[in-house]
Amino acid sequence: MEYFVLLEKCIWLGMAAIGFAVLFNVPSRALGYIGIMGALGGIVKVLFVHQDVSVILGTLFGATLIGFLGIPFAHKTNCPPPVLAIPAVIPMIPGKFAYKMMIGLINLSGDIDQATYIYIMSDTLNNGLKVMFILMSIAGGVGIPLLIARRDSAKGMHLKRKF
């Protein structure tokens, strides 16, 4: 993969993350960090897909990087980590696979022969499962680092005894 193409994808992924951050009314002091997080997380996904690794695994590692980067950037910007991580991870949502799944569902509702039906059904199911696992990878990749690095975890809680 050429470095220019990689740099171009990096810029577009960062701009998309900044666009979603502006849409969600994130404080302006955090926009640069969100752009960096979106660009780095998306590039990790692109590099995994380019190396013929699963898109699901690439998305998991990209979202995990965004989750871990959100913690120090949150301290610098005085924003909660999800405010930074969620707009940065939105460009990784699998729109192409969801679109293909919906088109397949629409095609299945028509009057088609048995062989075509089986082909369309398997393709639709494949795309639907990819969408589901990519979305689970995004949720886990962003959520798990935030839970691991949480400052006041269970030791800060006070449980009341009822006996």
Rank of each mutant, 00 (worst) to 15 (best):
F97K: 04
I34D: 01
A16I: 08
S28C: 12
N78Q: 04
I144Y: 02
G156H: 11
G143L: 02
I90N: 02
K96N: 10
G38Y: 06
I36W: 08
V49A: 01
V131F: 10
L69Y: 06
I66F: 13
R151I: 14
W12V: 07
P82R: 01
H50N: 13
L23Q: 07
F24W: 05
D111I: 03
F133P: 01
P145T: 09
S122V: 02
W12Q: 12
P145F: 09
S137E: 07
P145Y: 08
F4E: 14
L40H: 10
K45N: 03
F48V: 05
K100N: 13
A115P: 02
G128H: 12
F24V: 09
N107G: 10
N107W: 14
G19P: 13
I71N: 04
G104M: 00
K76C: 10
L146W: 05
A21I: 08
G32R: 11
M136G: 06
G35N: 08
L31N: 11
F73G: 01
I103W: 10
N127M: 06
L47D: 12
G70K: 00
V49K: 03
S122I: 00
V142D: 01
N127R: 10
I34S: 00
A115S: 15
M15Q: 11
Y33T: 01
V5W: 09
K45A: 07
L47Q: 13
Y117A: 05
F97E: 02
K100F: 08
G95M: 01
G110W: 13
L57H: 03
L57A: 07
V55P: 03
C79E: 13
K76I: 14
A154L: 12
R151V: 15
T124A: 05
E8P: 08
I18V: 14
V142I: 10
H50A: 07
H158M: 12
V142C: 05
S137P: 11
Y117N: 09
D113E: 14
G95D: 02
I103C: 09
G62H: 00
I103A: 07
M136E: 05
D152Y: 15
K100A: 06
G141N: 02
I138F: 06
K76L: 15
L13R: 09
F24E: 04
L84C: 01
A16D: 08
V131L: 02
I90G: 06
M37Y: 09
C79F: 15
I66E: 11
I134F: 11
L108P: 06
R151T: 15
M101H: 04
D152R: 14
L6W: 11
N127K: 02
G156S: 13
M1Q: 13
I66L: 15
G104C: 00
Q114C: 03
L105V: 06
T116A: 00
G62P: 00
G19C: 15
T77D: 05
K100D: 13
L84Y: 07
S28R: 14
K100S: 05
L13Q: 09
N107P: 11
G67A: 05
I71G: 00
Y3A: 08
H158P: 00
M37Q: 11
L105T: 10
I144Q: 02
S109P: 12
I18L: 05
A154T: 10
G14H: 10
I118W: 14
I106V: 15
V46S: 03
V22E: 13
